[in-house]
Simulated assay, not measured.
Amino acid sequence: MDRFQGCSAILKTLKKKELAPSLKLMLNILILILVGIPVLLFATVVSPQQRGFYCNDASLSYPIISSTISTTALVIGGLLIPIVSILIVDTIKGSSDIQSQEEFLKKCLPPKIITIFTSIGYFLFGCGCIQTITDIAKYNIGRLRPHFHAVCQTDWNSIQTNCSSLHPVYIYPIPCLNPDHHAVREAELSFFSGHASFSSFTMIYLIFYLENRLTFHNPALLKPLIQFLCLVITVYTSLSRVFDYHHHWSDVLFGFIMGGTVAYLIARYVSGLIGGDKKHEQKTNDVETA
């Protein structure tokens, strides 16, 4: 009994103790790094699942068209627009959301800076999450893009006998004449659309952020206008993947839904943007990110 009471006393003491502010900061930075590691692994080490195709599948025979929204533009715009918006809004709004901070943080950083870094940290954490989910789907499903045959330069002569059959024939492995293995590898990553999921997450999360942080009422239509523009950006980016023949419509639809779902989950359960200002304030007080 005495031993049990002693253990209970130790547990109560540990519960009351909090991590040092500097350790909290380091752990949050480490978590952000860990979330980004799978993205690097998929981009450099992991190979997509190998799939075949049916001879009569015309959905893989579209021409190669340059991306309307390049990957570079997607990443820069998807990160820059929300981060700049957070910097502007949190700077204007001030530090009233943070009423109490540890002495360490008070001496090192003003509350306003802590608010900004915390908001950006939540956003970057969500970016890492949605990109990891997207890569897991892409590399494990390995669906062929609509312009696969144009990229692969499929050797139809070697499979002409099989494809001359009246019944659909599944061709695997696929004979490609294109020596650029990286291009062929990219042509095997159709499901689901990374452009759709990433743009959907970043813009919809920004919509939630603006809804929570912008509290002015005049002019009444300014905030809805900004939010509508965010929605237009992600819808146009997503649709461009279809009319550029880089994705099937189902890839884009699923990617858009997945990005919006992750944006809601991060805004609801991580950053506390959904559920009232008090919840967001409590989240900001509890977590300091770099």
Rank of each mutant, 00 (worst) to 15 (best):
Y205D: 04
S238F: 01
H167N: 12
T215L: 11
Q131C: 07
S66W: 02
Q153M: 05
S22G: 10
V184H: 07
F243T: 03
L210N: 06
P168Q: 04
Q131V: 02
Y172V: 04
T289E: 04
Q282S: 09
E288L: 07
I69Y: 13
S67V: 04
V35E: 01
I136G: 02
F256Q: 00
S8T: 04
A187M: 01
V75S: 00
L225K: 07
I37S: 06
Y236P: 02
C108Q: 14
F104N: 11
S96Q: 08
N162Q: 14
L253H: 02
K93V: 10
K279L: 14
D180Y: 05
L32V: 06
Q99N: 02
Y62P: 00
S22M: 08
Y139V: 07
N157S: 12
S66G: 15
H182L: 03
F243G: 08
I171K: 02
S165F: 09
Y139I: 00
C152S: 03
T237P: 05
D277K: 13
G194Y: 04
L273N: 12
I31E: 09
G275E: 09
N178R: 00
F104H: 11
I37M: 06
L32D: 11
L210P: 01
C230Q: 09
L80E: 05
V84E: 05
D286A: 10
I65E: 15
G259P: 04
I204Q: 11
V39F: 10
C7F: 12
E288P: 07
I174T: 14
C127V: 08
I159V: 15
I114T: 15
F198T: 00
C152D: 05
T72I: 13
I133C: 10
E281F: 02
V184R: 02
Y245D: 12
F4R: 14
F216M: 00
H147N: 14
S67T: 01
L166W: 07
